[in-house]
Computed example of a mutant assay.
Amino acid sequence: MPSLDPGRTALLLVDLMERIVALPLAPRPGTDVLAAAGRLAAAFRAAGAPVVHLRVERPGVPAQPPGSDLVPDLPREGEPVVVKRTIGGFQDTGLHEVLSGLGVRTLVLAGIATNLGVESTARAAADLGYDLVFAEDAMTALTADEHRASVDLDFPRLGTVATVPGITLDGRG
């Protein structure tokens, strides 16, 4: 995979919230996804590329369930946190405007769950014309079969599937 331009690429971390990371997940536990996403975020920050966080809230309830905050120490000060109330990250959230304001044309996606929040967000992003890269080892699902279906069948039709070590950024893009 060629290096990505940090001036036009953002890392989009989907639903890395305490209660979601703690679920029984497959093919890898949420803690492994969190570690891989953390490595990817560190690389983006070092390259000066934006890191954007998505977090889901349940609509129409007086309070969110315990563990609905992003995992502590994941977002850094100044990094956008976009709240969604649907499965995907673009519907009525302002995410597209945030990304456009940052000059982003390529998204690297990671998070939980592969076939839900990540895939729904990716489909809308593709419809909006973003180039997509999927960090396969920085995502997981409720079952391994659901994860594999997205990674093997759907994501290759939408963009490039890669692993965290294969995703590099440089200024020559």
Rank of each mutant, 00 (worst) to 15 (best):
A162M: 04
R157E: 13
T86V: 10
T168K: 11
E97G: 12
V133H: 01
G38Q: 07
L70W: 02
R58M: 15
P80G: 11
R58G: 09
P2F: 04
V56H: 15
D127W: 02
R39N: 13
V61E: 01
H147G: 13
M1D: 11
V61M: 00
P29L: 02
V104Y: 00
D92I: 01
A124E: 14
A122Y: 03
S100W: 04
G48M: 09
A49R: 06
K84L: 06
G94D: 09
T93A: 03
P6R: 04
P156W: 09
A144D: 14
D145F: 09
L128R: 14
V61D: 01
V33H: 02
L169K: 06
T163I: 09
A42R: 12
V51K: 06
H53S: 10
R19A: 06
L13W: 00
R28A: 13
S120H: 15
A144C: 09
A162E: 13
T9I: 00
A113R: 13
R45G: 04
S150K: 08
V33M: 00
G94R: 11
A124R: 14
R105Q: 12
E79A: 08
D5K: 00
A162T: 07
D154S: 15
S68K: 03
P27T: 11
A110L: 04
V108F: 02
G89H: 04
T114N: 03
L54V: 11
R45I: 03
L54T: 12
L11W: 07
L11T: 09
V21P: 10
V14L: 07
P75F: 06
D154R: 15
D131M: 07
G111V: 01
A47S: 12
F90V: 11
A162F: 00
D92H: 13
V82I: 15
A10R: 08
T121S: 08
L25H: 07
G88C: 10
A37D: 01
A43G: 15
L34P: 01
R39D: 14
G159P: 11
A110Q: 03
L109S: 02
M139T: 12
D152K: 13
T121M: 00
R172T: 15
L109D: 01
A26P: 07
A49P: 12
F90H: 05
T143L: 02
I167Q: 03
S68C: 11
Q91S: 08
Q91E: 11
L142T: 14
P66L: 06
T168E: 08
D152L: 13
V104H: 02
D69P: 12
R28T: 12
F155W: 10
S150W: 04
A43C: 02
S68Y: 03
A43D: 14
A22M: 05
A141V: 11
G30C: 04
A162R: 08
G38V: 01
K84D: 04
A162N: 06
D131V: 13
H147V: 13
D137H: 05
D15T: 10
E77K: 14
L23A: 14
V81L: 03
V61I: 14
D152W: 09
V81Y: 00
E146D: 15
D69G: 15
A49W: 00
L11P: 10
T140N: 05
D131G: 15
V71Y: 06
E146H: 14
V98I: 14
P50K: 11
L16H: 01
T93S: 02
G129I: 07
L102V: 06
G166M: 06
T160H: 08
P62D: 08
P6Y: 02
T140Y: 00
L107I: 10
